[in-house]
Amino acid sequence: MIRDGFILAGILFALGTAGVLVRRNIIFMLMSIEVMLNAAGLAFIVAGARWSQPDGQILFLFILSMAAAEVSVGLALVLRFYHQYKLLDADAANKMRG
């Protein structure tokens, strides 16, 4: 049971990471990050359940609020990005090349 929960969290995290790396659309990258955050949250809850502690769920609440903040900042950045480049391709913003 607990083992399944961790495996699910791992799969979700891997999917989210793959999404961030593979997708070029910046909105999808944000969504993938959300997936990763939720995977981490799931892992906390499963761990809290395993040791019958409330800490896991408390941390999930933190993650939720943090994710909300992240999305608001992220979407604002996306808007600015779109305003600048007229598209949503993350690779278009490569002016910081060394």
Binding site: T17, V20, L21, R24, M29, A90, D91, A93, N94, K95, M96, R97, G98
Partner: peptide, 18 residues
């Protein structure tokens, strides 16, 4: 040599971090 890896592409950085 090291400035080569500063590609300016965010996804590369994310991959690096991962």
């Amino acid at each position: 040599a090291l400035s080569r890896i500063q590609t300016g592409r965010m996804r590369w950085y994310a991959a690096g971090i991962a």
